[in-house]
Write a protein that binds this DNA or RNA. Sequence first.
DNA 1: CACCGTCTGTGCGGTGCCGTACACAATTCC
DNA 2: GGAATTGTGTACGGCACCGCACAGACGGTG
Lengths: 242, 242
Amino acid sequence: MSALHAPRQNHLLAALPAAEYEHLPPHLELVQMRLGDVLYEHGGELRYVYFPTSAIVSLHYVTKSGASAEIAGVGNEGMIGVAVFTGGETTPNLAVVQCAGYAYRLKSQLLMQEFNRAGGRRSGALQHLLLRYTQALMTQMSQTAICNRHHSLEQQLCRYLLQSLDRSASNELTMTQELIAGMLGVRREGVTEAAGKLQHAGSISYSRGHITVLDRSGLETQACECYQVVKTEFDRLLPRCD
Amino acid sequence: MSALHAPRQNHLLAALPAAEYEHLPPHLELVQMRLGDVLYEHGGELRYVYFPTSAIVSLHYVTKSGASAEIAGVGNEGMIGVAVFTGGETTPNLAVVQCAGYAYRLKSQLLMQEFNRAGGRRSGALQHLLLRYTQALMTQMSQTAICNRHHSLEQQLCRYLLQSLDRSASNELTMTQELIAGMLGVRREGVTEAAGKLQHAGSISYSRGHITVLDRSGLETQACECYQVVKTEFDRLLPRCD
DNA sequence: CACCGTCTGTGCGGTGCCGTACACAATTCC
DNA sequence: GGAATTGTGTACGGCACCGCACAGACGGTG
């Protein structure tokens, strides 16, 4: 029986072999994340890296004119702070909490040490894992670019809901249409319309910030290929070892 | 006086300290790249990684419906085949030559060996460098996503021309409007119109696949912030050591 | 309960780009 | 020198989404 909160609820931490994992827990700190919390912003240093268990974080960009859009999302399948081990220390983005929940955090410096220990006594599994995650993250970014270019608002909404669902424990999501619009970088009214269609079709049901997914496969049919491409790539690069 | 073709014309190879670079040349192979050559495609293995000197390569995605768009470009500032050391071996993308020219290639296996040698005798400068390049590439992808979402065709065209210019030796580019349209994922007619405006404004001049940039700063004014964001990030992560 | 802030629905004109179709100009090929 | 190929210009209807404005509807708070 698993504890209410456990680091291994994060897939990356769960994928580490015991030998590499065992000395991490003393340094892993459970933190609560509230909607809208900013983990880092453009130019700010990353003091910690975060491994979400139940929270969902959005990597975001805000243009000079104030428009914004999500570049990639991170839930319990990933981590926030890739720039720590790629060496740039920061990125021109913003990491903001999109669904409240929990995450474990680790001092950046500590992660760096572990990452660079590859080739030494240990197997380098951590490095290997994080690099693969980085590639998966790049796939997500690529697909966001494509999706923004070629797919309709409704298709994107479906993709977004599905991705959020995969990161969520239940079939209910807590997010307003306003918030989704901010993520997709579109008008709130556009989301209202697209969501209305989905509700009409019986795929979802929502009210005041609570979305219940009734027909997951319906969403998958409506979604663009981007969802599957990203999912397939994540599964390929980071197979779950349940 | 530099040779006509030299590996060090590629900024990444040039940035390697002598101790790490010196044993690479025997394995570096100069290859000619023609317009449209495909270096790898979705699912195909990456037998080589490429370090362009004069060629420009586009990381592309083609949707099921046949639409396509560039995710990121790679010129003499970078390399093709990041997935080799991130461990995924392949990506769901396509790498296609966008401007004919030359590149040096290296067997993927060899790069992997070098990459993983960090922590051993050598300093790990290669690993460090490639990770930083990976981050820069991610910035480019992110910005492509944002640009596709929020910026006009004309702004994107300016950005694209500027990025190509930075990778080019002269102020002339060899690319048709049709090709540019394919890169941006828009209609050819849209490019004609936007390019017409730029020509009218005196920023560029073109005819049948030959574009001459007359007023670079004019383009920079018209371009969206994405160009500068990416450029600044590249300079920060991979400073030129000329 | 009445109130207010938040969330959602709807309508309307505007616009940037699409899809299509076709004309013309500049090269290359015989 | 004529024909075929390739690159560019233009025009027109259509549509998805935008920006704005406002109305209703729900839910928590005093």
